[in-house]
Design a protein around this nucleic acid. Structure first.
Length: 425
RNA sequence: GGAGAGGUGGCUGAGUGGUUUAAAGCGGCGGUCUUGAAAACCGUUGAGGGUUUAUAGCCCUCCGGGGGUUCGAAUCCCUCCCUCUCCGCCA
């Protein structure tokens, strides 16, 4: 959400930012609505000032037993005009808010321009894709061979895009989540959180999923939404609060299920568990002072990369171009893990700096040590990492010729003595 | 689901229609004292918006959200939301 005062002062910069997102200029329209709003508001306020004076006079006159009918008559006459001005101001304000709520964040200068993922820029790679002396299989073939990844049974009760894991493979998913939480809490200072996974409209408005992306979400009969990512709940921890500057930075992590309707993805990744309606994810959220968010963004991305390094999974990190970034982000790094079965890199984490875009929407503020008033902090979120996709990556990278999966060293403490996952007899 | 009690400034918490501008405490900030710190004492300290070159003034709004009564509402009425307590049900 943008500050209309900033748009008023820098309309060209605002429109230039929109253009990089492929959007038409809006500054002039917004400024016109805002001008209407302010004119009506000023008028209403002036009438209110007069009314306040008169009410005071009436009170004084009455207490002395004097006649106040002239003042009362004047108040009565101005009532309609004031109500009309107030109504106009509110209508224009609502119109302005609705327009602003649908405008995405503007990319930082260093973000590469581009229409889609083909214009993303690789900034580093880590590890070397292993070469197998047999034909590497995809995770769903491996899972089927193990007898521990069952799409049919899941489909019977839930439909497409669900899976049922069992035995050591189910445990491997649990081990991955535990391992990731341990890394982030013990080594990187994140506070572990166990948040709700159902939220109200206002929480999703705060992080930017609403009002524009309702179709990507699941909604319950009671009007609650299932979170598409724990970014929603972790970021909304600070919603509506004014905190002291010393409180920042805040760093939260949580392992939760995420729910996505995948409305726009029909026909995409229909095979396997790459794209599910429900998946486990460890999420990282940071709330920082504005001047710290760029460094925090790098740090957060390193936290996510550390998970893959410990698991010895080759990956590359890319910076998303303007056309591939999410609604609330001003800059995003994607981490893509190497999948030998698919023979390509696939997204396993996305780390975004949202600037003050979300903080404004959820009225999260802090009180600076120096100077007056309050400021909006910056919010960042990143997967640290997607547990479901990490499971896939481990399976494909640690597969053996006989279809078994070697447990990565980093996960052995979490697997209760299981070192190799063997097919069910 | 039934009954009841509440939602007040960064936090706790007074205040039931008019001597406007919400008491007090805590916290924060400044100062006195001290070699320094703590304690004590004194002072100060809300948010959003309009106007404006202005983080100066002046003005408006804000006591959960919305609506109403009144010349005037934290205070009265309606409605919605939320929190808490007891009962019922229940992982």
């Amino acid at each position: 959400m943008f500050d209309i005062r900033w748009i008023r002062e820098e309309p060209d910069a605002f429109d230039a930012g929109l253009a990089r997102r492929g959007l038409a200029p809006m500054a002039q329209t917004l400024i016109e609505i805002d001008a209407r709003r302010r004119a009506a508001q000023t008028e209403a306020q002036e009438l209110q000032t007069r009314r306040n004076e008169l009410s005071k006079q009436i009170g004084q006159a009455k207490s002395k037993g004097e006649d106040a009918s002239d003042a009362m008559a004047e108040v009565a006459r101005s009532k309609d005009a004031q109500a009309e001005a107030e109504e106009k101001a509110k209508a224009a304000g609502d119109e302005l808010d609705a327009a602003l709520a649908g405008i995405p964040n503007i990319p930082l200068d260093e973000v590469p321009d581009g229409a889609d993922e083909d214009a993303n820029v690789e900034i580093r790679t880590w590890g070397t894709p292993a070469s197998f002396d047999f034909e590497a299989k995809e995770h769903d073939a491996l899972g089927d061979g193990l007898g521990m990844m069952d799409f049919e049974t899941a489909a019977k009760m839930s439909g497409a895009r669900f899976v049922l894991l069992s035995g050591p493979l189910a445990r491997l998913e649990r081990a991955l989540g535990d391992f990731m939480l341990d890394v982030h809490t013990r080594e990187f200072g994140y506070t572990e959180v166990s948040p709700p996974v159902m939220v109200r409209d206002n929480a999703l408005f705060g992080t930017g999923q609403l009002p524009k992306f309702a179709e990507d979400l699941f909604k319950t009969g009671d009007g609650l939404w299932l979170i598409p990512t724990a970014e929603v709940t972790l970021t909304n921890i600070v919603a509506g609060h004014i905190v002291e500057e010393d409180y920042l930075p805040r760093r939260y992590t949580a392992q939760t299920l995420s729910f996505r309707s995948e409305a726009g993805a029909s026909g995409k990744d229909t095979k396997g568990m790459i794209r599910q309606h429900q998946f486990m994810k460890v999420e990282l959220v940071s709330v920082t002072r504005p001047e710290d968010s760029a460094a925090e963004h790098e740090r957060m991305t390193e936290c996510a990369e550390t998970v893959l390094q410990r698991l010895e999974l080759p990956y590359r990190t890319v910076v998303l171009c303007t056309g591939d970034m999410g609604f609330s982000a001003r800059k995003t790094y994607d981490i893509e893990v190497w999948l030998p079965g698919q023979g390509r890199y696939r997204e396993i984490s996305s780390c975004s700096n949202c600037g003050d875009f979300q903080a404004r929407r959820m009225m999260a503020r802090y009180r600076p040590k120096e100077g007056k008033g309050t400021r909006f902090p910056h919010t960042l979120n990143g997967s640290g990492v997607a547990v479901g996709r990490a499971l896939i990556a481990v399976m494909e990278n640690y597969q053996n010729a006989d279809g078994s999966i070697t447990v990565p060293d980093a996960l052995k403490p979490y697997m209760g003595g299981i070192e190799v996952i063997e097919p069910n007899a």
